[in-house]
C-alpha cells in the first residue's frame, strides 16, 4: 500500500463526513406531507440535530431536494427544472407515498413516482410518513453519502 492510496481514502472519508452533516435542503412541497415536513423540521423533532436544518429556498444553494407531496403531470417540468438548477453534489429524497409511487392516485393527473422524472436517493414511504421515518431516511442518506465515492469532478448522473 502506497502512502498516496491511504491519503485518498482518508480524504474521501473526510469529505463524506463534511457533506453528510451540512445538508442544505430545498423543500419542494406540494401537498399534505408538508405538515409532516414542518413537524420534522421544527423544534419537536428537530432535523437540525443531524445537520440538515438549514432550509434554502433557492435550488441553486441546496444540496438536498426534498420532494414532499403529490407531483402531477402539470408540475413535472417544474420539478425537473428545479432539479437541474441544483449544483452537484446533490441528493434527492422522495418524501411520502405520492412521490414514491403515486400513492393512492392512479389517474390522468399524477406522476407514478418521481423517479420517472429525476433520480432518487432515498424513498420514505408512508401517507404521510411519521417524523421518525423522515429522520430515519435522513440518517440513511447520511450513511449513503458517507460511503459513496466523493467525486471531485462530478460524473454526470444517469
Amino acid at each position: 500500500m502506497s502512502g498516496l492510496d491511504f491519503l485518498t481514502t482518508r480524504l474521501e472519508t473526510a469529505i463524506g463526513w463534511g457533506r453528510k452533516f451540512s445538508l442544505f435542503h430545498y423543500p419542494f412541497i406540494t401537498a399534505c406531507c408538508g405538515m409532516e415536513y414542518m413537524s420534522a423540521a421544527c423544534a419537536h423533532f428537530d432535523i437540525d440535530r443531524f445537520g440538515a436544518g438549514l432550509t434554502r429556498f433557492s435550488p441553486r444553494q441546496a444540496d438536498l431536494l426534498l420532494v414532499v407531496g403529490t407531483i402531477s403531470h402539470k408540475l413535472a417540468p417544474v420539478l425537473k427544472t428545479v432539479y437541474d438548477q441544483m449544483l452537484e453534489p446533490k441528493w434527492v429524497i422522495a418524501f411520502g407515498a405520492c412521490t414514491v409511487s403515486g400513492g393512492i392516485y392512479q389517474n390522468y393527473a399524477v406522476v407514478q413516482g418521481i423517479d420517472r422524472i429525476i433520480p432518487v436517493d432515498i424513498y420514505i414511504p408512508g401517507c404521510p410518513p411519521r417524523p421518525e421515518m423522515v429522520l430515519d431516511g435522513l440518517l440513511k442518506l447520511q450513511d449513503k453519502i458517507q460511503h459513496q465515492k466523493q467525486d471531485w469532478r462530478w460524473a454526470r448522473k444517469t
Binding site: 413535472a76 406522476v111 420517472r116 422524472i117
Partner: peptide, 19 residues
Amino acid sequence: ALRKSYPWRLEQPRIPLKG
C-alpha cells in the same frame, strides 16, 4: 379526463418519463 369514456389510467406527460 372526467368523462366515463376517458381511459382510467391514461397519462399524458408533458416531459419524457423514465420507464
